[in-house]
């Protein structure tokens, strides 16, 4: 198979999900005729018809709200939120209903909410945010974020097939990353992946920061520092065994995400490691992330976001603990 971009892999995944299950519906702003602002839904309306792939009015709250209703009626809705910064108006529906419906009624809602997230694309305000921690904090949701085209395909299939609601974060900075994918390969929710093996320290990343972590590991190799990179893929549930297995080898962990560090998801990872792997640690779990300031104007985003240097700086400190 030809290498495909992550955008194309997601498109293929939606296509196969729509073909495989008539109950799957894809909808959101501009997903129909236009094929989505990132073309993730390109051509789907043409193939599957405007009943199953449709444009909605501009209203995130109700896009998610009707997903609840459609799911109750037996469909598997796959709504799209156009950009990370626009999910907040749907927050009430997601937190109060999507996440809690089963607990309140015994009825499962197999909804997959797709959200492009993260920065590094030089965009204007509200288009580069990393709101994952709001959702990992919400019980009743599963939260995933692929980092590669192959995982994007497989994880989206798993998310749509899952009986519970899944928040599916797509790293838009990686939409045009290419690789060969294998549609047969299952990517279950809740399983992390060792993206690179190493022994000196473990970098834990997800979504857009995985390739950054790999870049850091490549740079470190030149200094004879061996770094292991874990691509979480799934934030909730979190694959602790993969993390702990790595720490048995490295005893040092550096968590990298684009979201601000204070109150970010890295805090949960660090706490879990402290809970389950306290004895393994030879250095405090380091967190590298965005500044604790609002996402800046795009010309400053590279300084705001984690980069190879900041990761290696954290690695240096972890290693200095001996």
């Amino acid at each position: 198979m030809e290498p495909v971009t992550m955008a194309r892999a997601l498109n293929l995944s939606l296509r196969d999900a729509l073909a495989g299950d008539e109950q799957v519906l894809v909808f959101g702003e501009d997903v129909g005729t236009l094929g989505g602002v990132f073309r993730i839904t390109d051509g789907l309306q043409k193939t599957f018809g405007a009943d199953r792939v449709f444009d909605t009015p501009l209203a995130e709250s109700t896009i998610v709200g009707i997903a609840v209703g459609l799911a109750l009626r037996g469909f598997r809705p796959v709504p799209e939120i156009q950009f990370d910064g626009f999910v907040y108006s749907a927050f009430d529906q997601i937190v109060s209903h999507v996440a809690k419906y089963r607990n309140r009624s015994g009825i499962s809602l197999p909804i997959t909410i797709r959200i492009p997230f993260g920065g590094h694309i030089g965009a204007v305000e509200h288009h580069s945010e990393s709101p994952e921690a709001y959702f990992t904090h919400t019980a009743g949701l599963k939260v995933v974020a692929p980092a590669t085209p192959g995982d994007a395909y497989g994880l989206l299939r798993s998310a749509i097939a899952d009986p519970d609601p899944v928040i599916f974060f797509e790293p838009k900075a990686r939409y045009y990353m290419k690789e060969e994918i294998n549609p047969e390969l299952e990517v279950p929710i809740g399983s992390a992946r060792v993206a690179r093996e190493g022994s000196g320290a473990t970098i834990i990343a997800y979504g857009p920061t995985v390739s950054l972590a790999l870049d850091a590991a490549g740079a470190a190799e030149k200094e004879n520092i061996s770094l292991e990179v874990i691509d979480l893929r799934s934030l909730s549930p979190l694959d602790m065994p993969t993390i702990l297995t790595s720490l048995q080898k490295t005893h040092r962990a550096v968590v990298v995400h684009e979201a601000p560090v204070f109150g970010g998801f890295g805090g949960e990872i660090a706490a879990r490691i402290s809970d389950d792997g306290f004895d393994l640690l030879e250095a405090p779990v380091a967190r590298v992330g965005g500044m604790d300031a609002p996402y800046p104007p795009s010309r400053y985003e590279k300084l705001y976001l984690p980069d190879v240097d900041r990761i290696l700086e954290a690695v240096d400190i972890a290693l200095a603990y001996g």
Binding site: Y88, V124, P294, P297, R299, Y300
Partner: peptide, 21 residues
């Protein structure tokens, strides 16, 4: 991409742009 709010809204009685519709 240099500023989120280039003008003083009070000076022009013109509020900052609002992207979230």
């Amino acid at each position: 991409g240099l500023s989120h709010g280039p003008w003083d809204p009070r000076k022009y009685a013109f509020a900052p742009l609002a992207v979230p519709v």
